[in-house]
Simulated assay, not measured.
Amino acid sequence: MTEATTTANTDAPASRSSRDKLLVSALACFDEHGLTGMTIEQIRRQANSSIGSLYHHFGNREGLIAALFLQLLDDQLAWSRTAIDAATTPYETLHALIHGYLDWVTHHPVEARFMYAARSEVARGENAAALKEKNRQRIGLLLAVLKAGIKSGSIRSLPPETFASLLVGPSENYCRAWLADRVQGKPVAHADVFVDAAWRAISATPCE
């Protein structure tokens, strides 16, 4: 099992350490039992925590799942943030995003499986607004780059939802297949292929 990237900060207060232990334990229980099979009691025992502490930090099981999902969204973005910030063109930004995403999934398969399994539950639950805002912040930079590319004529003018399907869809489909053991090649090994395909799909000019 891959340990969660939500490891405890040793300089944080005890309450934060307890919270992080519960998040790491939830991921471990997911890895062993699946999303529908893991229980509050399993997570509590794994974290050597009390039921009261769990409910204090997260309110309920749904809140715990949402907190882990949102934390992993942040971890995923942080994985490639340096490359994204260094990008100066739409193509470089696209390259950094896709490479970073595929590299993160390759190195964090348990976390990625959790995110795929929990996404719809979080999107439908009490934390749907928090997830929507988190995604808005995450894609804000990309949308700004795409708008600049459209204005300069280097990128086709397409609806935002179409961009999302073209840029992320193929990579996500491959990652799902890899995580389900339907394909063998690690996602990051195919990153350049997915970057090239995404750029060809949105570019108004020949691929760089």
Rank of each mutant, 00 (worst) to 15 (best):
T2F: 01
T2R: 03
E3S: 03
T5L: 13
T6Q: 06
T7M: 08
A8R: 06
N9M: 04
N9H: 03
T10C: 07
A14D: 13
S15L: 11
D20L: 05
L27Q: 06
L27R: 02
D31N: 13
E32A: 13
H33P: 03
E41K: 07
E41D: 15
I43E: 07
I43Q: 04
R44F: 03
R45E: 15
Q46D: 11
A47N: 07
S50L: 10
S53E: 15
L54P: 05
L54M: 15
Y55C: 04
H56W: 13
H56F: 13
F58E: 09
F58H: 06
G59A: 08
R61I: 14
E62T: 08
G63K: 10
I65A: 07
F69L: 12
F69G: 03
L72A: 04
D75Y: 00
A78G: 07
A78W: 01
W79L: 08
R81P: 00
I84T: 08
A86L: 06
Y91Q: 05
Y91W: 11
E92H: 02
E92D: 14
E92R: 05
T93Q: 11
H95S: 10
H95M: 09
A96Y: 00
I98C: 03
Y101G: 00
Y101S: 05
L102S: 04
W104P: 05
W104V: 01
H107V: 10
P109H: 03
E111V: 04
E111A: 13
A112P: 04
A112C: 06
A117E: 06
A117V: 04
A117Y: 00
A118R: 02
S120F: 00
E121C: 00
E121P: 00
A123Y: 01
R124C: 09
E126V: 07
N127W: 02
N127A: 11
A129P: 02
A130T: 04
K132H: 06
K132I: 13
E133I: 11
K134Y: 00
K134S: 14
G140C: 07
L141V: 12
L142R: 05
L142T: 08
L142W: 01
L142A: 09
V145P: 02
A148M: 14
G149H: 02
K151Y: 11
S152E: 15
G153Q: 11
G153R: 09
G153T: 10
S154V: 15
I155F: 03
I155T: 10
S157I: 10
P159F: 04
F163M: 09
A164P: 00
S165F: 02
L166R: 09
L167I: 15
V168T: 08
G169V: 09
S171Y: 00
E172T: 01
Y174T: 07
Y174N: 03
C175G: 01
R176E: 10
R176K: 12
W178L: 08
W178S: 06
L179Y: 02
D181G: 01
G185H: 10
G185Q: 13
P187A: 12
A189V: 14
A189M: 14
A189I: 13
A189Q: 12
V193Y: 11
F194T: 08
V195S: 09
W199M: 12
W199Y: 12
R200E: 15
S203N: 06
T205F: 02
T205A: 10
C207L: 08
